[in-house]
């Protein structure tokens, strides 16, 4: 049975697309047939993060309108045979996505895929609504910062009222993913800690992704950061995928790295 997972946050710039790319790739690398769907109509970016921007021919809206079929529209990832990308349209027509159209495409995807990862746009407009409407599970991406936490709480409210599951009396399974976490600043009392955010949002913690240079390095190259297995962020995403699949793994990268005496004296990083 295919599972639809929405990656959402309300606020922009917190790491939804980075997370969609990483989680989707992680699921594919673990053997699940996965498609990542970009719902950000007009501001397509998943293709760039995945490094397939030059292979986009048709898009989500073409598929809905019947201008192209699934085979023509899906882009197969070059790194994994299990991974496909459905790019968003760059149209400026904000009504291009319709609920019936999205439902039809998702039903078709469900026939061949194990996981459908929906990359939601920021905000609470139509694109964001449709990305979450058909979801079975939601990963709420949050930064340890006031506006992001507040917007995440707002999204949790919408997930529990304006989704198909909510309308039929079921619940969407919610996961918290804290990104851009800086344990040093949290220790100093300058940044909300993991438990602060857990206290406020009170949903189960899927993972904590440390603020990391690897994320920009990966997006520069169009490689999902989870492929950088030596990096802290890549490993943290790997753990999050394993937890999503039901494993229990202790959280890592929550403690500030102890600096050596030499680093402390000479200000090394």
């Amino acid at each position: 049975m295919a599972k639809i997972i929405v990656i959402t946050s309300g606020k922009g710039g917190v790491g939804k697309t980075t997370t969609s790319a990483a989680i989707g790739t992680g699921l594919a690398l673990r053997g699940f047939k996965t498609v990542i769907v970009d719902f950000d109509v007009g501001l397509r970016n998943l293709d760039l993060i995945m490094g397939c921007e030059r292979r986009v021919v048709y898009d989500f809206v073409n598929l809905i309108n019947g201008d192209s079929n699934l085979n023509q529209t899906l882009i197969k990832d070059k790194r994994s045979d299990n991974l496909y990308i459905l790019p968003a349209s760059q149209t400026r027509d904000k009504d291009a996505l319709t609920q019936d159209g999205v439902e039809k495409v998702l039903e078709e995807l469900k026939l061949t895929f194990d996981y459908i990862v929906c990359d939601s746009p920021a905000g609470i407009e139509k694109g964001a609504h449709l990305a979450m409407y058909f979801a079975d599970e939601a990963i709420v991406v949050t930064n340890p910062e006031v506006s992001s936490v507040r917007d995440s709480d707002r999204m949790l409210g919408l997930l529990s009222s304006k989704s198909r599951r909510a309308e039929s009396g079921e619940r969407i399974k919610e996961h918290l993913l804290l990104t851009r976490y800086n344990p040093v600043r949290a220790d100093l009392g300058e940044m909300l800690t993991v438990s602060d955010v857990e206290d406020i949002l009170s949903i189960p913690l899927l993972g904590v992704i440390p603020e990391s240079q690897a994320v920009l390095k990966a997006s520069n190259q169009g490689v999902p950061v989870i492929m950088d297995e030596l990096s802290d962020a890549g490993q943290a995403y790997g753990d999050a995928v394993d937890r999503l699949l039901g494993e229990t793994i202790p959280h890592r990268f929550l403690e500030a790295q102890k600096k050596s005496l030499l680093q402390r004296l000479f200000g090394g990083r």
């Binding site: 910062e145 006031v146 009392g189 300058e190 909300l192 406020i200 402390r264 000479f266 200000g267």
Partner: peptide
């Protein structure tokens, strides 16, 4: 670095607790 170590030893402001309190109220 070595110089910062002597220059700035005052306690850092705990702004995170302010953030948490404000968030709990508004949420």
């Amino acid at each position: 670095s070595l110089f910062d170590y002597f220059r700035d030893r005052k306690k850092p402001a705990k702004t995170a607790s302010v953030a948490k309190e404000r968030l709990q109220i508004i949420v």
